[in-house]
Structures are given as structure tokens and as C-alpha cells.
Computed example of a mutant assay.
Amino acid sequence: MSRTAIVTGASSGIGRESAIALAQAGWNVVITARRADALEETKSMCAVEDERVLVLSGNITDEDFVKKLFEESVKQFGRIDLLFNNAGVNAPATPLEDLSLATFQNVLSVNLVGPFLCAREAFRVFKSQTPQGGRIVNNGSISAHTPRPLSAPYTASKHGITGLSKCIALDGRAFGITCTTLDIGNAATVLTKRMQAGVLQPDGKLMAEPTFDAAQVGAALVYLGGLPPDVSVPHFTIMAHNMPFAGRG
């Protein structure tokens, strides 16, 4: 029986690499993000039959769109086995007293409300399908354990993801639903190019930080998705070797 995964934020970076990895491992893949043209690029890079990759562009903070996303996925492939809540945003490093409410709320909306909406719809599908169950992987962050300076919106959202994941795992236990928080540190994407020039450290210094190939996150997702349903991985951390983590220095 073929397996189906939904990957949010699949227009670039970690989401794109994850979609490619899953497709090439034999999964049907539903890819979503706001930019339809970039999603079509991701689809072509999957290099599999067209009918195995469904493109649905939209905003995961839009409740109606998220419902449509899951309805269309089930209509196309019959069931859903894996949800990767990957879509997310950051905010510029800003002193707390200068941080606008709009910025704070936008980061929480995309990074936490969006995953909640997707997880809720996944629960509805997972509980109703036969065989029952499925796996949710939430993109967390090293910042959920040790924050960077001036990162209140992002860090708060990723702490929220940790709590959401624990509740998903607990509430889904009786229905064959597992949940993993996938904490990622310095996967090389467009967003991490600034790390080559220097990232603010707790002591006030700027320091270049190592990164690692984002394709390795895709490999991790294939591993998690391939586990038997009676195996759960509550927490999975993948990061660049030698990046500042413990103590952030």
C-alpha cells in the first residue's frame, strides 16, 4: 500500500528537501506553501510521476485552506500517513522593548497556529481512516532548548511547538497517532546564509556558525516516516556539528 505525506512550507529549504526525499523514497507527497510557482519547482525536483505529487498553494494560517488541503489530499490519495508541519517564519533580532505586537503575533500565527490547524485536520483523518493512525512531525528548533539573543517571538513559538507535540502524542496515543518534535539546528538554507558572516552570540560578539546540508533533514524525515506504527520517537535533534548549542557559546 502506498503511503502519503503532507509537507508544509515545501517551496524551498527544508520543506523542499523533505518533499524530494519522501517522493524518491516512494511516498505520495502533497506539497503546500504560499508560492505556487516555487511549489511547481519543488514538484519537478521530486523527479517522480506527476500523479504522485499534489500541489496546493495557500496559507496554513487560513482555517478554510487547511481544511481544503486535507480534503483534497484524501480525495487524491485515499489516506494520509504523515504530516510534516514545517512552514515557519522568523523575525529580525530586536530588543524586547522595541518588538511590535504585529511582529510577535505573526510569528506565533505561522509557527504555532498553523501547525495546530494542520494537526487538528490530521487527527480527523487519522482517526477515521483504516488502518487507523498516522504520524505527525513538527519542525521545532534548537531555540526551544537554548534561545538566541533577541529572539523572543521565534523562541516562544518553538517552545509552543514542544508543548503542542507532547499533547498531540498524548491525545493521539489511543488512536495510533504518534508525534515527533524535530529540532533542527543550522540546516543550510537561504535563511542561514547570514551565519557565514556572523551571528550574534550571548556575549555580544558576532561569530560565524557551521551549517549542514538540509537534505539530511529529508533523510531524517524518511527514517521517521518509515518506522512501524508501534514505534514512537518523541524527540529528534539534528544539527550542525560544532554549532553553539549547550550554553550557546
Rank of each mutant, 00 (worst) to 15 (best):
A119W: 07
S143F: 06
A122I: 01
R135K: 15
N138I: 04
R148K: 14
N106L: 04
T103P: 00
I136K: 04
L150C: 01
N111E: 10
L117P: 01
T146I: 09
F123H: 08
N111Q: 05
N111Y: 12
G140D: 11
F116C: 09
Q132W: 06
G134T: 07
N138S: 12
N139Q: 12
P131K: 10
G140Q: 08
P149H: 10
N139S: 14
L150R: 04
G134C: 09
F123E: 06
L117T: 03
T146V: 14
R120H: 15
G133T: 14
R120G: 01
A119V: 09
I136D: 05
F104T: 06
T103V: 14
L108V: 10
G114D: 07
H145E: 15
S143M: 05
P115Y: 11
L112G: 09
R124S: 10
A144R: 05
L117D: 03
F126W: 14
V125R: 01
G114A: 10
R148V: 13
L108M: 14
N106C: 00
S128M: 13
C118G: 07
L150N: 09
V125P: 03
S128P: 02
P131R: 10
V107L: 03
E121L: 01
V113C: 00
E121V: 05
I142V: 15
P131Y: 11
H145T: 15
